[in-house]
Design a protein around this nucleic acid. Structure first.
Lengths: 190, 190
DNA sequence: TAACGATACGGAACCTTGTTCCGCTTAGCA
DNA sequence: TGCTAAGCGGAACAAGGTTCCGTATCGTTA
């Protein structure tokens, strides 16, 4: 059930290149970007994509799993690199938003593959909730935040604020910043 | 600003044929059915479709407006044709469900054209809520229903019951029937 | 009624996308 | 160094939307 490394070195290299290229292209052109564009960006032929990822949807899923993993690992790293746990939390939320903004095209891109989307979402929650909890606890322990918020609530809240983030009239990131700032000063007025 | 009839008789005939054919094909094969299939069903060439509806999305929107109109007109007609207003309501809900089941593919089919979807939804509410109200009032006046339910609530309720109606394990129509039956006997127990 | 111009029609051709296929290349090993 | 199977590139195919244009038809006018 563990990670079974593919055989050849160049194959492994290409797989990573593809994941990186796809992530970049998705950010630049959206999740609907043509497979050919991704192949070009990675400097490989389309055939190579299809050997690693049987279908377009599989590639998309793989990229997002990859992002979830990165986000997971970033939590402890940020905590170690910052004196202030609150700062770490804020930076982590920032990464999380990067991820969400692109993630919102997902449901559409995976229209047929509903099962794939569900399992991805489950994976997403399984891995990210504990990280968020850790950051939240650390900030609370350091006395840097007043409001008591459950990790899942915070993640949902941020997620919901990011809905419609592609509308240029709506600055989702701004609203998230406000929400995160709100953690510092309890829910009482004045 | 009113309805401006197209010029030629055959053009008008074809437009109607297209609307009917598209509705039939959408029911049979879903909203993603190829334009060619619709043209074939209507017995016209694809070019004809594109003269009447500049884009695939426009055709889809036109079909659904057409359905909304049909549903709107069916309300008073059913009321007139039935002795029991409740029976009329039940039959109307049936038509409404037909419409909803296919409507749920819409958001996906119009992915790019979000504005089109929004305005369609507004049109949908504007026209259907009054009809639903009329049926509900008539049934209440005849003493055939006990529960007091707002038209919009009923429509949303039915709409929500129809979510996931394409899943063969879930019989949405059955649940709607139960809900409608529930109108007859108030919300108290026994 | 015959002729004529505008209007509408059909469907082949085109473009973009996902996916498959297969001859060539190259990593890894003896 | 040579062998072989894993990998690779990209042309070719399939499917869908959209465009184009020669032909047919409508509706009017002489």
């Amino acid at each position: 059930m563990g990670e079974h490394k593919p055989k050849r070195a160049d194959a492994r290299r290409n797989e990573k290149a593809l994941l990186d290229a796809a992530a970049a292209v998705f950010v630049a052109s959206g999740v609907d970007a043509p497979v050919r564009d991704i192949a070009a960006k990675a400097g490989v032929g389309v055939g190579t994509i299809y050997r690693h990822f049987p279908t377009r949807a599989d590639l998309v899923i793989a990229v997002f799993r990859h992002q979830v993993d990165a986000c997971t690992e970033a939590g402890p790293a940020l905590l170690a690199a910052n004196d202030s746990p609150y700062a770490a939390l804020a930076q982590w939320i920032d990464l999380f938003v990067d991820f969400l903004v692109t993630k919102h095209g997902l449901a559409g891109a995976l229209q047929s593959d509903n099962a794939g989307f569900e399992s991805l979402h489950a994976y997403f929650l399984d891995r990210l909730v504990p990280v968020c909890a850790e950051l939240l606890d650390a900030a609370a322990a350091a006395g840097e935040i007043q409001a008591e918020v459950a990790p899942l609530d915070l993640m949902r809240g941020v997620g919901n604020l990011c809905i419609g983030a592609d509308d240029p009239r709506y600055d989702a990131r701004r609203m998230v910043k406000v929400l995160v700032a709100g953690l510092r000063c309890g829910t009482m007025d004045a």
